[in-house]
Design a protein around this nucleic acid. Structure first.
Lengths: 202, 202
DNA sequence: CTTTGATTTGACCATCTGGTCAAACTCACG
DNA sequence: CGTGAGTTTGACCAGATGGTCAAATCAAAG
C-alpha cells in the first residue's frame, strides 16, 4: 500500500483513474450494487491492484464522498450577503442546475447515499451541512426582514432549490422517458428561473 | 409454490407480511443491498418459506413495483379537466405531498429504482407513465391557452411537483439532519402552496 | 547494468447470498 | 381419527464477492 510520502507519477494517475471509475460504478449501482471487479474493469486495472491503492471498497467510496461534499456545497457557500438578494438566490439556483447538468454522476452518488439513510455521511450532514445551511438561512431571513424578498420559509426555500435542480440528474431516466427525444435541459432553466422570480419578488 | 387458485387464509396473511417486510428492506437498502434473509427476518418467516410464496427475490421486488406504480400515479390521474385549473393543480400538489408523508417507503423504493437507471421499470416509464403525462401536459397547455393559468412549460411543471414533494420522503435523513428536531412537514405545505400560487397565477 | 523499492497479478480463501430439496409438520375436512 | 393437500424448515449447493499474499515485473537512481 502506498504510504503517505509524496505520491509518484504512477500513483497519481492510478488513483485518479480508480476514483473516476468508482464514481461511474457507484453512482450507477449504489455502494452495495457496485463490485470491486466492475470498478477494476472500468479503471483498466486488476482487482488486487485497486486494493493496493485503496485498502477497501469502502475506502474508495469514502474518498469520493468526502471529496464531493465540499465542492457540492460551494454554490451555497457563495451566496453573498452583500449582493442583491434576488440575483444572489437566482445565481445559486442556476449554478446548482448547471452542476446537475455537468456532474450528474456526483449528484446520483449523493442521492444513492441519502436515499438509503446516509449511513456513511450522517455525521457530516448534521454538522458541516447543517451549520452552512443554518448560516445561509439566517441570511435569507435577514433579507426577508429587510423586505428585499418575499416572506418564505428559508429552509424550505433551500430544500426546494436542491430538489428542483438535482431532480434532473437523479431522476434523469424518468425525465428522459417522459420527454422522449427532447433535451431535458431545454426549458428547465427558464422554468425554474420563472418559478423563483415569482416566488421571491417582494 | 402456491398456484393460482383462490388463496387460502394463510397465503393471504403470509404474502402480505412478506410484501410489507420487503417494502421495508428494499426501500431502505435498494434491490441489491437487500438480502432475502433480511426480508425473511422482518417478516418473521424462514428464507425457504419466502421462496415458497415468491419464486425469487426479484419477484418480490416486481410485485411491489407494479402494485405501486399504479397507486403512485393516481393523484395525477385525478387531475380533472372540468375543475378550476389552479385549484386542481394545487390539489394535486397537496395530495402528492401527503403521499410523501404517508408512504415514504414507497417513495424511496421508486427513488432507489430510478436513481439506478430504472432497470426493472424502464418500459413502464416510457409507455404508461409517458402516456399519462403527455395527456395531462396537454390539459395543462389547454388551460394555459385559455389564459386560466400562467404560461409555464407543462412538463417541467409536473417534474417540479414530483421533485418538490418526493424530496421530503426520499431525502428525509438530509432534511431532518438540517432541521434538527423540527418536523419537516411543519411549514412544507404552506411553502409549496405559496410557490405554486405565485407561479401559476395568470 | 544492477539494485532496490514500487507496482502488478494469478491463485487463493472465507464469507455471503440466492436458491433448492427432501423431509417434517399442520390443517381442514370427510 | 385419518388423509391428503398445503406449509415450513434444516441442510445444503453453486456462484459471487471482498480481500490476501507471495511471487513476478517494472522503474529509476546509482
Amino acid at each position: 500500500m502506498p504510504d503517505d510520502r509524496a505520491p509518484t507519477r504512477i500513483q497519481k494517475r492510478n488513483r485518479a483513474a480508480i476514483l473516476e471509475a468508482a464514481l461511474d460504478v457507484f453512482s450507477a449501482q449504489g455502494f452495495r450494487g457496485a463490485t470491486v471487479d466492475q470498478i477494476a474493469n472500468a479503471a483498466g486495472l486488476s482487482k488486487p491492484n485497486l486494493l493496493y491503492y485503496f485498502p477497501s471498497k469502502e475506502a474508495m467510496h469514502n474518498a469520493l464522498l468526502s471529496r464531493l461534499l465540499d465542492t457540492w456545497l460551494d454554490p451555497l457557500r457563495d451566496l453573498d450577503a452583500d449582493g442583491d438578494p434576488l440575483e444572489e438566490l437566482l445565481a445559486y439556483v442556476h449554478r446548482k442546475l448547471q452542476m446537475s447538468r455537468d456532474f450528474p454522476r456526483e449528484s446520483r452518488l449523493f442521492a444513492n447515499e441519502i436515499v438509503q439513510g446516509a449511513p456513511r455521511i450522517h455525521t457530516a450532514l448534521s454538522t458541516d451541512l447543517k451549520h452552512l445551511v443554518d448560516d445561509k438561512a439566517a441570511l435569507i431571513q435577514h433579507w426577508i426582514d429587510l423586505g428585499q424578498i418575499a416572506r418564505v420559509h428559508p429552509y424550505h426555500l433551500i430544500f426546494s432549490i436542491w430538489s428542483l435542480t438535482q431532480h434532473y440528474a437523479d431522476f434523469d431516466v424518468q425525465v428522459r422517458a417522459v420527454l422522449g427525444s427532447e433535451d431535458p435541459f431545454e426549458g428547465a432553466p427558464e422554468f425554474i428561473d420563472a418559478m423563483y422570480r415569482r416566488l421571491l419578488a417582494p
